[in-house]
Design a protein around this nucleic acid. Sequence first.
DNA 1: CGGTGCCTTGAGTGCGCTCAATTAAAGTGG
DNA 2: CCACTTTAATTGAGCGCACTCAAGGCACCG
Lengths: 241, 241
Amino acid sequence: MENALPALRLLVDGLERFEPLTVDAREAIFQTDCVIRSYAAGRYVLRENDRADFIGVAVDGFAYSHKQTNSGSRQILSVIMPGSTLVPENIFLSRLDCSVQTLTAFEVGLIPRKALRDLTMSFPEIATSFGTMLALDAAIFKEWMLNIGRRDARERVGHLLCEMAVRLSKSRSPTDLSFNLLMTQEQIGDSVGLTAAHVNRAMKALYSEGYLIKEKTLLKFPQWEKLCVMTEFNPEYLSYS
Amino acid sequence: MENALPALRLLVDGLERFEPLTVDAREAIFQTDCVIRSYAAGRYVLRENDRADFIGVAVDGFAYSHKQTNSGSRQILSVIMPGSTLVPENIFLSRLDCSVQTLTAFEVGLIPRKALRDLTMSFPEIATSFGTMLALDAAIFKEWMLNIGRRDARERVGHLLCEMAVRLSKSRSPTDLSFNLLMTQEQIGDSVGLTAAHVNRAMKALYSEGYLIKEKTLLKFPQWEKLCVMTEFNPEYLSYS
DNA sequence: CGGTGCCTTGAGTGCGCTCAATTAAAGTGG
DNA sequence: CCACTTTAATTGAGCGCACTCAAGGCACCG
C-alpha cells in the first residue's frame, strides 16, 4: 500500500500533539495494518449505525461528519481535514453515531478497530492520547453548540470560518490565515444551523463590511482581529493544554 | 470523609458500564483520594478557563455544564446527574472549556486529576473506560447539535425531555419514565437554544396534545411512543454498544 | 402575609425560512 | 474550444417561528 505509512505517520502525529509516545508505542502503531482507500467528492465513507470495524485517518482531502433528521435536514457535526481521525469516538464504541461524507476527493487510511483497541490495552499512553483527541474534539462540539444555539447568522458563519482558518493554519504559516473554502453555502448552513440562502446573505454582509475577501475559492481575512472580536472567536478551545 | 467511598463506587460503576475493570484497577481507584464537597442550588462548581486540578463525580443532586456568550446568553452543554463525571474531558485536558453550575443542592466527590492521570498510565483499562465515557458524552453532544440546529421548538423541548427521562430511568425501573423535572423553563431554553417564553409555549402545546402531564414537578409521559416518534427520539445514542 | 422566583400570556417585531427566479461558475462531451 | 449540462451562488417577495418586552398569576418560603 503506497500511502499506508504516511497515514500511520499522520495518526502518530495526531496522538503526539500533546505528549510524545514512547518509542515502543510509536513502533507498534507503525506495525499496524493500514489500507488506503480513495473516494470521489460527495461519497459516503461511513454510515450512521454501521459497525465500526475500521478507524480512518484522513490522508488527503476534506470530509465532514453529520446526522440527519427524518425529514431530511442535516446537521454537520465536524469538518475532517488531512490528519484528522474520522470519528475517533469509534475506537471506544462499536457502532457509528454519525455518517461521514466527502467534501472533495478524499483518501483515508483504514486501520482495523480491533488492532487499535489492542494497542490501547498494551500501551496506556496510546489510550490516553486517544482520550486527549476525543477531549479536543469535544471542545469543538461544545463551541459549536454555543455557536448554533446562541449566535446570530453573521456571527455563526464568521465563527465557523475563523475556526476553519485556524485549524488549517496549524499545518502552515500561522500568520497567513487565508484558505481555500471548499464547502458550499448549503454545507456551511448545515454546519451552523442555517439555510443556504441565509448563509449567502450573511456572507454578503461579511464581505461588504470588509471582514472577508474571496478570490475564486481563496478566502482572506483582511481584518482578522476585528472579525474575531465580532464573532467572539477565541482559538484557545482548539488547543486546550 | 463520609461519602468518599460511595463517590468512588459511582465512578467505578460509570467506568464499568461497558467493560468490567480488573480487580486491581478497581482496587486502585478505591485507594484514591476523594474529598466530598457540597453546594447549594445555583452555585458554580467549576469555572471555564480554570485549571482542571480535580475531577468531580456527582454523588447527589443535579447540575449542568455551560458556556456563555459575551452578551451574556448561555448555552447549556450537558445535564449532570448522580453518577456523572463532571466534564470527563478534563482528565485529558488541563484547562476547563466550560463551567459547571448546580441545579439543586449538590454533592460532588473531588479526585485529584493527577491521581487519575497516573491511574490511566498504570491501568490501560481505566484509560479505555474513560475514553468510552467521553465517547458516550460526545454522542449526546452530537444529538444536541442536531436538536438545536435542525428541529423546531416543540421537537427540541420534547427531545430533551425524552432524553432526560431515559437517562434518569437507567437507575430505576425502565418502564416508568416519569421524573422530577428540576430545570426551570429558562434552563430548558438554554439547553435547546430557545427563550424561556417560547419554551413555555412549546410545553403548553405538548401538554394540550397529551404528550406530557405535569403534577407538581413530576413529569409524566402518557404517550411515550408517540412522543418519541414526534421528536425523533431514539435512545440508542445514550448507550452505543 | 409580603416577598421572590417561576410560570403564563399577550402584543408586536424581526430574523431567518420558503420558494422561486436569475446569474454565475464549473464540469463534460463532442 | 465551444455548446450543453450541472451545480452553486445570488437575489427577491412574502411568511412565520421564535424573540422581546411587559404584565399578571401562582406557588413556595421566610
